[in-house]
């Protein structure tokens, strides 16, 4: 098992290098001079312009810039944002908890609801419940995220006034960052109403971000369950006189979870893409919004470093899912 993990970790290195190259080249293909952009309306004298380019290393040949960059990475140096002058890693770490909190809530919601809906649809195959849930899943899957988000905001924030429109926390509350996770920090702060405010701020972004994974997980669970329900061992389970709940919830679901776990893992990468949009819409101060802002500022270092760090997170999640897969599926465990 340890060997397996080590091998997988080693395999991450070439993947990671590939991503560094992509990130490095891609950002330099975008039009716009970062130094000019930094200067803004006032403009720059040609000498100052050249000096700044040299300071950031932009006067060097492309390969040189890349090698320097990689060398920096191995020292844990992901570059310095030239709009804030702070290390990219530090900025990332400051925002990552916000994204993690949102993504975690979304994947949790998507998994719990998706698995429940999929199981129900499979058990009541062909009934109106099945048709309704799969119909909703199809709609959810095809819904453009921003459109869906706007609908929810109009309904629940503007019209009903139940949920806030943006941000993570009401302005009335101030408390120190302990973990960076608003749900935990607001709870720890002990301020009345703070936790509720955190929850209210989370609801809409979570729903929006969870929608597509929810639809995918529900459909995958349904088809996995249908396959499993036709297996002979399901007859064995029923012939033992077990309750229907145990037959479906343990014997069938346990087997259906094998493909579903893989699906959930894949949805985590999808979620990262969705987070960029969702965070922008709800002004959620996480990685997604940070990346979008940095792209519009041509902050090369941040986009580069941010992409890499996101890729790293996704790779680690996939590794975890692979390990989980071994736990869920006894047939691959002892090989």
């Amino acid at each position: 098992m340890l060997l397996f993990i080590l091998r997988r970790l080693l395999l991450l290195i070439p993947t990671f290098l590939g991503i560094t190259l992509l990130a490095f080249l891609f950002i330099r293909m975008l039009p716009g001079d970062p130094v000019l952009l930094l200067a803004g309306e006032r403009g720059l004298s040609p000498e100052r312009h050249a000096a700044l380019l040299a300071q950031f290393g932009f006067d060097q040949p492309m390969w040189r810039q890349y090698v320097d960059y990689i060398a920096g990475l191995f020292r844990g140096d992901f570059g310095i944002s030239f709009s804030t002058k702070r290390p990219v890693l530090e900025e990332f770490m400051a925002r990552f908890p916000a994204t993690l909190e949102l993504a975690f809530c979304a994947i949790l919601l998507a998994s719990v609801l998706g698995i429940a809906a999929g199981v129900l649809a499979a058990v009541r195959r062909g009934s109106w419940i099945d048709q309704l849930t799969m119909g909703i899943a199809l709609v959810g899957y095809s819904m453009p995220i921003f459109w869906w988000a706007l609908l929810l905001i109009i309904a629940f924030s503007s019209t009903l006034g139940w949920t806030p429109v943006s941000g993570r926390m009401g302005l009335a509350y101030y408390f120190p960052d302990v973990t960076g996770f608003m749900l935990i920090d607001s709870w720890l702060s002990g301020r009345p109403g703070a936790f509720k405010s955190a929850v209210m701020h989370l609801i809409l972004p979570t729903i929006v971000l969870a929608t597509i994974p929810l639809a995918v997980i529900a459909r995958q669970t349904r088809s996995a369950m249908l396959e499993v329900l036709g297996e002979v061992y399901m007859m064995t389970a029923r012939s033992k006189g077990l309750s229907p709940l145990r037959v479906v919830g343990l014997h069938a679901l346990r087997n259906a979870m094998i493909p579903v776990v893989t699906t959930i893992g894949l949805q985590v990468s999808v979620l990262m893409g969705g987070a960029i949009l969702t965070e922008s819409i709800f002004s959620w101060p996480g990685i997604g919004k940070w990346m979008i802002d940095s792209i519009s500022r041509r902050d090369y270092q941040v986009v580069q470093g941010g992409l890499l760090l996101i890729a790293l997170v996704v790779m680690l999640v996939n590794l975890t899912v692979d390990l989980l897969y071994g736990l869920v599926n006894p047939r691959v465990r002892r090989q």
Binding site: V232, G241, R254, P330
Partner: peptide, 25 residues
């Protein structure tokens, strides 16, 4: 009432032994 009988007073085994057992347990 029927489930109380199944597995206790009457039991059944099938043609495909490997498929009859749940692979996850």
């Amino acid at each position: 009432q029927r489930r109380a009988l199944s597995g206790r007073d009457m039991a059944m085994i099938f043609q495909e032994p490997v498929a009859s057992l749940n692979p996850c347990f």
